[in-house]
């Protein structure tokens, strides 16, 4: 008889995480309410919430600073699209190079030093070079993110493919799988859990890096909003921009974590 596998509904978010988040908001509210810090240093949560709702879908206030008429949402869309495009490119390139380096020793000898060097470059220091190479277009931000993401995805993909039990590859070959099927049905599927881990780490770091890279001449984006509002000493809007970006990052992580969990449901432990 098969071992029991109860289909207990899995919560996409840890309840303890929500409690922690609520505790943080409560602390923030307490600190601002009892004036431990000035409103400039720490605006109250209610004020930040109001700034978000008033400037979310359209904002003439932000338009005054050449940040478009789309409000926070328009700037978020710019930031999100850069992060998503860079991650998609990095997944394709990083996984392909990682698998190739795990399988072909000669390629590994060639690719490892390049990727490891890329991984040790202080990414923020290189940002001005991207501005010089790509100008103020979004290509500069995307290229910077790709440099960051692709190294992480490459290392995770390489390790996953190298760690895959060779018995699975041998089994596939004796069952009649050709080289393409071995890559798609054995390496890719077997390595997915570890590769997904790398993608989540790359994504988590990409939000902050994208916001930073937007400071270097991007036409818009959440980073630009933060920069413009900080120059105006409008800490309420700075917090509003940070909060919306954090909410988007968390939502993406939860959604991607859920999707990855579903795709790799074959490895979920049976709950007895």
């Amino acid at each position: 008889m098969a071992r029991t596998s109860l289909s207990v509904a899995r919560l996409p978010v840890d309840p303890l995480g929500i409690i922690g988040l609520l505790a943080l908001v409560a602390l923030w509210w307490g600190l601002s309410q009892f004036h431990f810090l000035s409103r400039l240093a720490l605006p109250p949560p209610a004020g930040v919430a109001a700034a978000i709702t008033q400037n979310f879908f359209s904002s003439s206030y932000l338009a005054n600073y050449h940040l478009g008429y789309g409000g926070l949402a328009g700037n978020l869309a710019y930031t999100i699209s850069n992060v998503v495009v860079a991650l998609a490119v990095s997944c394709v390139v990083g996984v392909a190079l990682g698998f190739a380096s795990a399988r072909v020793e000669l390629f590994r000898a060639f690719a490892d030093p390049i990727m490891l060097t890329a991984g040790t470059i202080p990414i923020l220091v290189t940002a001005p070079f991207f501005l010089i190479w790509f100008g103020t277009s979004r290509s500069a931000q995307i290229a910077l993110l790709i440099l960051f993401d692709v190294t992480i995805v490459y290392l995770f993909a390489q390790r996953a493919a190298a760690n895959l039990d060779p018995t699975y590859v041998a089994a596939g070959r004796t069952l009649g799988a050709g080289p393409m099927r071995i890559v798609s049905d054995v390496y890719l599927k077997g390595a997915l859990p570890e590769v997904f881990g790398g993608i989540r780490i790359a994504l988590a770091g990409a939000w902050g890096l994208e916001a930073f890279s937007e400071l270097l001449g991007a036409p818009k984006g959440v980073g630009r909003v933060i920069q413009a509002m900080a120059a105006e000493m409008d800490s309420q809007m700075v917090f509003a921009a940070i909060m919306t970006l954090a909410a988007v990052a968390v939502a993406f992580d939860v959604a991607i974590g859920g999707a990855f969990d579903f795709i790799t449901r074959w490895r979920r432990r049976a709950r007895l």
């Binding site: 699975y168 041998a170 004796t174 069952l175 009649g176 077997g190 074959w266 490895r267």
Partner: peptide
């Protein structure tokens, strides 16, 4: 090289865990 005409049952688990 390997061929499906020569099937092999391994000592270690060779059933793909990611397939039903």
């Amino acid at each position: 090289g390997p061929s499906p005409e020569r099937g092999l049952v391994f000592q270690r688990d060779s059933v793909f865990p990611w397939m039903r």
